[in-house]
């Protein structure tokens, strides 16, 4: 179950970033702080609910199979590397130098955002190879769909449905 919590943790983090991206480039505001934080929290909350349901369903089905745990461990490995690179980006961005900050966007955040879908799908496919049992692979695929679902909800619904009205 620890692997499950780690994966849901990563999903919540991804949801927070999806929420943040959902308001970027939409408000026209200079002071983005409050609305961006709200959006990130909503994205994270939505991911947490979905991830929690996933874990609950798993527990009710008698816990994850050995194959699923193996796949989960591989997934945590792949996605942690991605998360670590993002963390390095934020650490560098804390340096108060305009060139260093620009470079974090140009070399880290931009390319990694573009690569994100490939990392998610490619990472899951690679992890599934470690224990290619149909039921475990199916659950992995469902998890991947949930991650994209959170992002699409943030992108298409969070702004238009919730936040737009809060930014006159």
């Amino acid at each position: 179950m620890n692997v499950g919590f780690a994966l849901v943790g990563l999903m919540v983090l991804d949801g927070a970033f999806a929420g943040f991206r959902a308001v970027m480039g939409r408000t026209g505001r200079v002071r983005l702080g409050p609305i961006a934080v709200r959006s990130a929290l909503l994205g994270a909350g939505f991911a947490a609910i979905l991830g929690g349901c996933f874990l609950q369903a798993m527990a009710m089905a008698g816990g994850p199979s050995a194959a699923l745990v193996t796949i989960g461990e591989q997934l945590v490995g792949v996605y942690s590397v991605y998360a670590a690179l993002i963390a390095v980006g934020f650490a560098l961005r804390a340096i108060p130098n305009v060139d260093v900050r620009t470079l974090t966007s140009v070399l880290i955040f931009g390319p990694l955002t573009l690569l994100r879908p490939f990392v998610i799908v490619g990472g899951a496919a690679w992890a599934a190879l470690a224990a290619p049992e149909p039921a475990a692979v199916g659950v992995t695929a469902l998890g991947v769909i949930c991650v994209f679902f959170v992002e699409q909800c943030c992108e298409h619904w969070l702004w238009r449905g919730v936040l737009h009205a809060q930014v006159p």
């Binding site: 970027m24 480039g25 939409r26 408000t27 026209g28 200079v30 305009v98 900050r101 620009t102 966007s105 140009v106 955040f109 931009g110």
Partner: peptide, 17 residues
Amino acid sequence: CHRELQRLALELQQGPR
């Protein structure tokens, strides 16, 4: 488009520069 363009200015640090 210009609201989206603002992201470019933000990430390339056009304000502080």
